[in-house]
Structures are given as C-alpha cells and as structure tokens.
Design a binder for these strands. Structure first.
Length: 554
RNA sequence: UGUCCGAUGGUGUAACUGGCAACACGCCUGAUUUUGAUUCAGGAAAGUCCAGGUUCGAGCCCUGGUCGGACAACCA
C-alpha cells in the first residue's frame, strides 16, 4: 500500500517548511479560553493541532488564553484538560497566558519606549468613534502625542491600581487610517479590578487577546499558530507586534470552523442554553459539547474519525450531523454488546410450551467480534415482544408477526401467531402463539425459512430499566440565522424518558465503559445517574434506516 | 464607496510542476444475513460561479465581473 493520502493545505505548508529546512520540527498549540466547555468545534481544532504535530514529529502545547478574568474559571480549566485527554491527546506543556503577564508587561513598556504605544484617557465610546468605519479612516486620539516619559509613568500607575476600570487604556500607536480596522491603534491593555482564577489580585490591568496571543506563541516558539477564519484580519496586527518586539516569528494560519446541521456551535449560545435551563448542564447529552456527547455514548475514536473525514479548508461549510452519526455507528457496531430490550411490551403466550418449563438459550455478545463470547438468554412460556412487531392487518412487505404468520424470535424459536386477544376497546392485549420445537436457534432442523426476526424478553426474568431517548435539540437545520433568542428553534421532544422498559437479564452486567446495541433499535450507554437498582440508559444513536424501506413501500 | 477571505455532485474534502474531475457521507439497485442492522457487488448524481484570454490541452495560469462570508467588543 504505497497509496498516498492527499494533503490538506496546512499539511502542504508544513511539509514544505520541513523540506526547505525552515524548521527542523514543528510546534503547535491548542489555545482555549477557559470560559466554557469544549465542543465538537474544538474537537476539530484539537485533532488538527495535535494531529499535525503527531504526524510530523513535533509537539503541541496546551495554552489557556486566560487574559479576561471576568469570564474565566478553574472549573472550565479542569473540564478542558479532561476532555482533551478523553479525546486521546496529550500535550507537551500545560501553559497559561497568565504565566506571561510579567513578560507581556515588559513587552508593553518596550513598545512605549519605542514610541509605539501610548496611554489613552478616552472613553470606550470616544475610542469607538475615533476608529472610523471600514470605509472611512479613523482620527487620532487627543492623547496620542503624549511623551514617552509621560506614558511610562501613566502605565506604571495603571498597573499600580491608581485608576478605576475604564479610566485609561494602553493603545498601540499604529495607523488610525489603516484599511484594516484592527490596525487603528488597537487597545493593548485595559484596567479590570477583577479576581483572576490564577493570578488572583496581583494584577488590575490585563492584556487584550491581540497583545497576548502572538507573544505567547513567540515565547513558546510556536511554528504554526493555527486558528479560525475570523482571525484573518488580526494576522496583520499579530505580525506587527512580533516585528516591533523583535521576538520569535511565529506565523498564524487560518482554517474554517466546523458548522453542523441542527447544531449550535458557539460558546456564547451554549452558555445561554445552560443558563436559561433549556438543558441540564454543559454535559446534557443533547449538547454538542465533548462532555455531552461523551455522556451520550460517543467514543473518542469515532470523533477523531469524524474530524479526519470532514477535512480542513478555508471555505465555509455546513456538515451534516449524519456524518458524525455514521462515524459513531461505524465504531459502535464493532464494539457494542448486543442485548434484547422491549420498549412497548406486548404479551405473547407460547401455548404449546409446557407451563412451568424454562430453558437457557445463548446468544452472541457481539457477532462482529469473534472474541466477545456468548450470553445466556432465558426462555419460557410467557414472553414480551415489541408492540411494533405485530400488525393485525399487515401491509405487503411486512416481515414481522401477524395473524397466521411466522417469525423467528432472535436466538430462539420460530413462532406462529394463532390467536389475537383484545380488550373491550378492541386493543390487542395478548398474542397466543405456538412454537416449532425443532427450530431452536443453532440446531434448526425444521426446514422452515422465515424472513422476519424480532427481539423479545422472557416475562419471568425481564429486568425493568429506564431509557432516555435523545433527539435533536433544534428543529431547524441551519441555525445561522437563529440569533440571540433561539427558543423558537428548540425541539420540545428532544428528550423522551421511558421507564419500565424490559430488558433481558444479561443487562445486569452493565458497565459504564461498555456500549450496547439494543437489538433492532439503536446504540445505548449507561448514564452516570444509574444506580444498582435503577439502570438508566442513554440512546447514543439509532440503528440506521431500520424501517426506511417499509415506510417507502407503504 | 473600502480591505481581506472564499466559490468543485445534495453534503464535505481531493485532483503532483496545466493532462480522462476522485474519495467519503447520503441516495438508488441487487446479493448474503437468525438484527429490515452489519457485510458485499453495482448505479445515479458535478463538467468545477460567470465572461473573455493564454495553450495542442485550463478546476488549476491571466483579465474583468458575480455571489457568499469576515472586519468598526476596554471578548477571545
């Protein structure tokens, strides 16, 4: 297999940088702000940054971009670290922008001394006005011409806490008429008398993103600083600071962020969902957060596979969630243990099976995995099958049970429906069937071929469990326009809890690390809320298109 | 009125220095199947935003348009 996988544009750049000797090895970084939980969009970035370093023999730093104390918390730091490890990646160094506060301060002083930064007393409104518009040049601040000495003193005083929030800022002296708005004397430092999750009250001035990110990259000798498209206009400023500070020339590259159908992928909106109580928390199984999909049963491997499949480019994209679900099923099919579970029970009595008799049949744990072994399944005279698996007046292509028809009970016998019992309202309450003794699974000598195979549980040994069926949180495919208040787009049926679902006894072996396929319904995993006497399962994904053909043909 | 980024089947991503537009998801057909799943075989679907140009030859190069997105937080 010499087949070469085509390179994405970043791999091409790195390939070239390595070939030409620009770098001996590469260093990337994953730079989350600890102001929320990681989501699928971050997974794309993580797989990209860590994956690139892995493939090219480099390393990746985890750096928390914690330059805004009012939004950041230690809880988020911990969850982020946990999620990255869970995804299967290990960072070379754990760093914080806040580690560089002293260094960044020195950088700022250096720029003041080079007459490339000044303290501005203007209000934020005044500064906004000075900036002009994308089509009109800005105007100089009246404080732009302060002397170096004066700026030095004022900046020292800012740090010393002599001013209130918003009273003064430090601005870069760039070009107020630059076509790029970000070059119009951007703010480098602002005053915030706020408690920082790591530096506590040591500082009351904090660097802005633009004055922290590039320098942090430079300090760490990051060779390829990869971020999303919206930072393209920042690149010029990124380079400007690096050039004027004469530090390591890290370079910024941009790629298009992940968008998925029926999914919001903005931290701001996810926070809103949490705060307004539309979901139970950041790890609600309907959330696109890593903690959410983990709780729902998605595997790290399937997410990595997904990130690989969606590729990397610079054009805007909207990925169908179906692709993610495909990746999840692909992995789960290989590892999930098979169990029979009946959601809406319909009683079946096998009239020719002796009363009081029972036997233990066996079934494969997982037919896709030869080493998975077998499980025991008790069989007896009274069973439950899925109501959906019986139709009194079946359409043409219906292969399951109907009056006078035969089906196989998975891993057991072929049965024939002889009689339908209804209550006063005409509702079917019980089926009387006969079984074919020679048709026992594994030793079938009956010669009978049936097309339908259904799942079942023995009434005497069935275990009641609780099942949580999760559907899409949103009703609309593209939430691009769903700004601000997206209550209108929420799907009220996104969560369906079913109690007293009946499962075969093997369900008792349930383990939180295992994945299950409930035969013919979908993939499930044990929810952390489960206890020994109350097993709760979350539905990961449904089985693919189980009834699609039938629906189409009817 | 500006600057920057982008445009390839329904979706996403490819196509080495110009050389028969490929792969995956989805869709359709058939086979196998004690899960209507899985697996397997096959198929439909774009002629590459438009108009010119260079060339034996353009998705790739040139010129001019069109459309979409980003940019005016003391957020990142």
């Amino acid at each position: 297999m010499t087949e070469e996988k085509s390179l994405n544009f970043l791999e091409e750049i790195i390939d070239n940088d390595l070939k030409t000797g620009k770098y001996k090895s590469i260093i990337t970084r994953f730079p989350p702000e600890p102001n929320g939980y990681l989501h699928m969009g971050h997974a794309k970035s993580i797989c990209l940054n860590f994956g690139l370093a892995l493939n090219y023999g480099g390393k990746t730093n985890l750096r928390f971009d914690d330059t805004n104390p009012v939004t950041e918390e230690t809880e988020y730091v911990e969850s982020i670290k946990h999620d990255i490890k869970w995804l299967g990646f290990q960072w070379a160094e754990e760093l914080y922008a806040s580690d560089y506060f002293e260094k960044l301060y020195e950088f700022a002083v250096l720029l003041i001394k080079k007459n490339l930064a000044y303290v501005d007393d203007s209000t934020s409104e005044e500064i906004a006005k000075q900036k002009g518009t994308p089509t009109q040049p800005g105007t100089d601040s009246p404080f732009r011409s302060r002397t170096i000495e004066e700026n030095l003193t004022l900046f020292t005083d800012m740090r010393a806490g002599k001013y209130k929030d918003g009273e003064k800022v430090l601005r870069a002296k760039a070009d107020m008429s630059h076509v790029n708005m970000h070059m119009r004397d951007p703010i480098m430092y602002r005053i915030k008398h706020a408690h920082h999750h790591r530096t506590g009250d040591a500082w009351c001035i904090y660097p802005m993103y633009d004055f922290a990110h590039g320098q942090s990259d430079a300090i760490e000798n990051i060779t390829h600083s990869i971020c999303t498209l919206e930072f393209i206009p920042h690149r010029e400023l990124y380079d400007w600071f690096i050039k004027n500070l004469e530090i390591y020339p890290s370079h910024q590259y941009e790629f298009a962020r992940l968008n998925m159908t029926y999914t919001v992928m903005s931290k701001r909106k996810l926070l809103q969902l949490v705060n307004e109580g539309h979901v139970s928390g950041w790890d609600d199984p309907r959330m696109p957060t890593l903690s959410g999909v983990r709780r729902r049963g998605y595997t790290p491997k399937s997410i990595r596979e997904f990130c690989d499949k969606i590729g990397v480019a610079k054009r805007e994209n909207l990925i169908d969630v179906g692709l993610l679900e495909f990746c999840v099923r692909e992995d789960l099919n290989k590892i999930a243990l098979r169990r029979m579970v009946v959601f809406d029970p319909l009683k079946v009595v096998i009239t020719n099976y002796p009363e009081g008799k029972s036997e233990v049949l066996t079934g494969e744990e997982n037919p896709e995995d030869a080493n998975s072994g077998i499980r025991e399944i008790p069989f007896s005279r009274e069973l439950y099958i899925e109501q959906e698996d019986f139709m009194e007046n079946p359409p043409k292509k219906y292969f399951r049970l109907a009056p006078g028809q035969m089906v196989r009970l998975k891993s057991a016998y072929i049965i024939k429906c002889d009689e339908v019992i209804k209550d006063a309202n005409g509702k079917v309450t019980e089926l009387r069937c006969s079984y074919i003794p020679e048709s026992r699974s594994g030793s079938d000598t009956s010669g009978i071929n049936v097309k339908g195979v259904i799942h079942w549980v023995s009434a005497a040994t069935a275990v009641p469990i609780e099942v949580r069926l999760y559907d899409r949180l949103f009703k609309v495919e593209d939430l691009g326009e769903a700004e601000g208040d997206f209550k209108d787009y929420l799907n009220p049926e996104s969560l369906l809890v079913k109690t007293n679902v009946l499962a075969e006894p093997a369900i008792h072996k349930a383990n939180k690390d295992d994945r299950y396929q409930f035969l013919r319904t979908g993939y499930f995993c044990l929810d952390p809320d489960s206890t020994a006497d109350k097993l709760i399962f979350n539905r990961t994904v449904t089985l693919r298109d189980m009834w699609a053909k039938e629906a189409k043909k009817n």
